[in-house]
């Protein structure tokens, strides 16, 4: 599924955690199980899923912070070895990561100025004075007064801190940003400020975003294409409008049905799906959604593959397999 304009490709990524000796029942946890994904230059690819589905693991692998147990990460045609890294590796600075929690992801003992200068300083870019100028320019770009350069993170509100988190990721001039729940910790009125800022920055700097969130409305708003994950696998991937208006995988349908009605509109008659995510260590093989799926069938004992059912629309479900047999 690689397109010529792909900036980042993930090939058959796997990440499993071996059981620890103590207190474990000895099963391997497969956090990500064979995910292939191709991110196109300039787009926002959203990844949605419930907690434990592996969406953050994918983000960390894509930004080379975590080494997968299998598969490869290809950035602009060049294979990168995740996990084995040098901070000065210029390719690595092309992909940056924005954390969910703007409280714990900023060193409380650094001033904002130093936090922003650090990504340049460790790469020995420019003189001190030049770096300082860059920092001040960045601060005003993200909507903070340059005077904030001398303040500490605790003096900032949540929204201001998240601006700093985004600014820090932008300092090494990346081409791709991995945004892992960037607005989930913020108040609604501040969320909109940050989402607008991200949109503006993307347009100005031709950035590509990998946008990870559990919030279906936020992902809908931000993304061009959306991948839905369930227990370590992609179950559906399509252009955003097509996915939300005509979800094909039963799990995607359940998610879309669970979106609250828009305030002030007439409530829809939506089915609410029963059951919860099973323990990923105790999957019996086959489709992971089988236990909650209203259409489960014997065939579902086999793992369905992600297949293109319409141009650009991929689904992993036996119900939608073209009739071959």
């Amino acid at each position: 599924m690689s397109a010529p304009e792909a900036i980042l490709e993930l090939h058959h990524i796997e990440k499993s955690y071996a059981p620890k000796r103590w207190l474990s029942r000895g099963e391997t946890l497969r956090a990500v199980d064979g995910v292939s994904l191709s991110v196109r230059k300039g787009e926002t690819l959203g990844i949605v899923g419930e907690s434990g589905c592996g969406k953050s693991t994918i983000g960390q692998i894509a930004s080379l912070m975590l080494r997968p147990t299998g598969g490869s990460v290809v950035f602009k045609g060049e294979e990168l070895v995740p996990g084995r890294r040098s901070p000065r590796d210029s390719r690595r600075s092309r992909i940056q990561y924005v954390f969910q929690d703007p409280y714990s992801s900023l060193n409380p003992r650094f001033t904002i100025g130093r936090l922003l200068e650090e990504p340049l300083a460790i790469r020995k870019k420019g003189t001190r004075r030049e770096r300082r100028r860059e920092v001040l320019r960045m601060l005003s770009r993200i909507g903070l007064d340059p005077a904030y350069a001398d303040r500490y993170p605790h003096e900032l509100s949540g929204g201001q801190r998240q601006r700093v988190g985004i600014a820090r990721a932008l300092m090494p001039s990346p081409e791709l940003l991995v945004l892992d729940e960037p607005v989930s910790a913020l108040d609604v009125s501040v969320q909109a400020q940050i989402l607008n800022l991200l949109k503006d920055l993307q347009a100005e700097r031709s950035l590509t975003y990998l946008f990870i969130s559990h919030d279906l409305n936020v992902v809908h708003y931000m993304s061009d294409r959306v991948a839905v994950m369930y227990l370590g696998r992609i179950v559906e991937l399509a252009e955003v409008g097509e996915l939300y208006d005509g979800p094909l995988h039963p799990y995607t349908r359940a998610l879309v049905d669970a979106i609250p009605d828009e305030p002030g509109t007439t409530p829809r008659e939506a089915e609410i799906i029963e059951g919860e995510l099973p323990d990923p260590r105790q999957l019996a093989g086959g489709c992971a959604f089988r236990a909650r799926c209203p259409f489960a069938h014997e065939r579902c004992g086999r793992q369905p593959l992600l297949e293109e059912v319409k141009p650009g629309h991929y689904v992993a479900c036996h119900l939608l397999e073209p009739d071959r047999d």
């Binding site: 201001q160 909109a192 809908h220 708003y221």
Partner: peptide, 24 residues
């Protein structure tokens, strides 16, 4: 009104979100 307008609802796709400036 501002709170409602700043929600990233499906109907606002493609438009700029209204945001309440500043913080509490």
């Amino acid at each position: 009104a501002g709170l409602l307008a700043s929600l990233a609802l499906p109907s606002k796709k493609g438009t700029r979100l209204h945001s309440i400036p500043g913080s509490v």
